[in-house]
C-alpha cells in the first residue's frame, strides 16, 4: 500500500506575544504515516491537539519543526514551509478538509457551495451542480434548501452541507474533523458509507471521531495524541 501522507517530527507551539509572550506547546515530534485506503483516527483527550494536528496538515497552522509531506501530482510535497500557492494547489486537487464548523460565505446557494470545489478544478458548472445535488440528496438535505444560502440552517444541516462539499471532489487525502457530530442515525450512516467509499477508491483519511462507534466502524488504526504539559 502506498503512503499518501507522511508526518515526521512535527512540533507546534503558540506564542502569545500580547499576553507577555507566553508560550503554549501543543504538539511535539508527531510522527504519522497514512497509506491509501487507510482511515486513521486521531484520539486523545479534549484539548490534546487533535484539531491542531489536522490544521497543521491542511496548512491552516504553521509548523514549527518537522515535515508534512503529501503525495501530490505523482510526487511528494512538504507542506511545512511550502509556498502559499503550492499549498493552495494541493488543497484544490489533493487535500480535502471537512472542518468542524461550516464557514459560511454570505448569499451563496447551498448547491453552489458544494459544487465550488469541482468548478474550481474546471468542471462545467452544470455538471458540478448535478453532482452536488446528488450528494445533498444522499445526505437527506431537502431540495427546497438547495437554493438557499446555508447561513440560516440548523447545525446538523450545516454539517451535512460541509460534508457534501468535502466529498464533492474525490480527494486522494481527506481530513475529517468530527464528521458525524450533530447528525442523527440515518445521516451518520450515510457519512460512514461515504468514508468507506473513499477508502475503497484509495483515499488516505485522517479523522477525529468523538463517537466511538463511528470510529470503530470506519477506522483502520488509531493515533493517540497525548497532551503536553503546558508551560506557563
Amino acid at each position: 500500500m502506498t503512503d499518501m501522507l507522511r508526518l515526521t517530527g512535527v512540533s507546534k507551539s503558540f506564542t502569545l506575544h500580547n499576553q507577555g509572550g507566553v508560550r503554549l506547546p501543543v504538539l511535539a515530534g508527531a510522527h504519522l504515516r497514512v497509506a491509501a485506503g487507510e482511515c486513521v483516527a486521531l484520539t486523545g483527550p479534549s484539548g490534546a491537539g487533535k484539531s491542531t494536528l489536522m490544521r497543521l496538515i491542511y496548512g491552516n497552522y504553521l509548523t514549527d519543526v518537522g515535515s508534512i509531506e503529501v503525495r501530490h501530482d505523482g510526487g511528494w510535497i512538504d507542506l511545512a514551509g511550502a509556498d502559499p500557492r503550492a499549498v493552495l494547489a494541493v488543497r484544490r486537487r489533493t487535500l480535502g478538509y471537512v472542518s468542524q464548523f461550516l464557514r459560511v460565505v454570505p448569499r451563496v446557494a447551498t448547491r453552489d457551495v458544494v459544487a465550488e470545489p469541482r468548478i474550481a478544478l474546471g468542471e462545467a458548472p452544470a455538471d458540478a451542480r448535478a453532482t452536488a445535488e446528488s450528494l445533498l440528496a444522499r445526505l437527506n438535505l431537502p431540495s427546497a434548501l438547495w437554493d438557499l444560502p446555508p447561513a440560516t440552517f440548523s447545525g446538523g444541516e450545516q454539517q451535512r452541507v460541509n460534508i457534501a462539499r468535502g466529498f464533492a471532489h474525490p480527494y486522494p487525502v481527506l481530513l475529517l474533523d468530527e464528521p458525524t457530530a450533530s447528525l442523527d442515525g440515518a445521516n451518520r450512516r450515510v457519512v460512514l458509507d461515504l468514508i468507506e467509499e473513499a477508502k475503497d477508491r484509495g483515499a488516505a483519511i485522517v479523522g477525529i471521531f468523538h463517537d466511538a462507534d463511528a470510529r470503530g466502524a470506519v477506522c483502520t488504526r488509531e493515533y493517540e495524541i497525548a497532551p503536553l504539559d503546558r508551560a506557563a
Binding site: 506575544h17 500580547n18 491552516n60 497552522y61 504553521l62 502559499p84 499549498v87 493552495l88
Partner: peptide
C-alpha cells in the same frame, strides 16, 4: 505574509496577533 486563513488563524507576528484579536 502568507495564506489568508493561516495568517488569520495562526498569526505569528505580535502585531498580526493584536489585529486579529
Amino acid at each position: 505574509t502568507g495564506l489568508t486563513d493561516q495568517v488569520l488563524d495562526d498569526p505569528q507576528h505580535p502585531y498580526t496577533q493584536l489585529l486579529v484579536s
